[in-house]
């Protein structure tokens, strides 16, 4: 392409051609999903093993590894991903804002639980167990609809089904014993993050 004068018809052709080129569907890579998925699964397994073997609830503090590690790694990976693609679409901006909102909401929820625990001695931490399997699947499904990626929609739907089941258990006063609740939590994250992450990366590889 050069700097030359064009006819009116060529002007329209350039505009439509450039719009088509920028509309190439860009889902990004699945690495951030995989990082959160594996991180959550590894920490959950770790908590599960330590709880079963020691029966000491203090091991629940290990859960904090998820937001700390994920919170540090996500902006770094996201920046790297954007540099690689060279473009930031309006969809990227929208999904980034939605996930940031989820992050802030999670942080507020943690503070609420801490407040209840420290000032009132009330244990609300179960909410932090349900929060990721209710809020994250809904956001993930929305993202899947926006970028037209079915693995995100189906993965999110399975995660949400598990989340709703667990919520029903809590409301119905069915105790969430760690020997079955934690594996269910792991299944939710495998379906929501690990499988879609690998599918997206596989699609990206085969596009090259």
């Amino acid at each position: 392409m050069d700097e030359k004068k064009i006819t009116e018809r060529e002007g329209i052709e350039i505009i439509t051609s450039m719009i088509a080129r920028t509309r190439e569907r860009y889902v990004g890579d699945g690495n951030i999903l995989l990082m959160w998925g594996y991180l959550t699964v590894i920490v959950t397994v770790l908590v599960w093993i330590t709880l079963v073997s020691t029966q000491n609830p203090a091991w629940n503090w290990l859960w904090f590894l998820i937001p700390v590690v994920g919170g540090i790694a996500t902006p770094i990976m996201s920046r790297k991903q954007q540099m690689k693609s060279g473009v930031k679409s309006y969809t990227d901006k929208l999904t980034s804002k939605i996930w940031t909102t989820v992050g802030v909401a999670s942080a507020v929820a943690v503070l609420c639980c801490l407040g209840f625990a420290l000032f009132k001695g009330i244990n609300c931490w179960l909410m932090m167990f349900l929060f990721p399997v209710i809020v994250i699947p809904v956001v993930e499904m929305a993202q899947g609809f926006i970028v037209k990626e079915n693995s995100l929609v189906f993965g999110g739907a399975i995660g949400l089904a598990i989340g709703l089941f667990m919520t029903c258990c809590v409301v119905g006063k069915v105790v969430l014993y760690h020997y079955w609740a934690l594996p269910l939590f792991i299944v939710a994250f495998i379906c929501m993050m690990i499988i879609p992450g690998h599918i997206i990366n596989h699609k990206k590889k085969s596009q090259r």
Binding site: M1, I14, I19, T22, V87, K88, S89, Y90
Partner: peptide
């Protein structure tokens, strides 16, 4: 025109 058409469709 090509540059402007692209930038109209993306954030950056």
């Amino acid at each position: 025109l090509a540059v402007m058409s692209i930038l109209m469709n993306v954030e950056e």
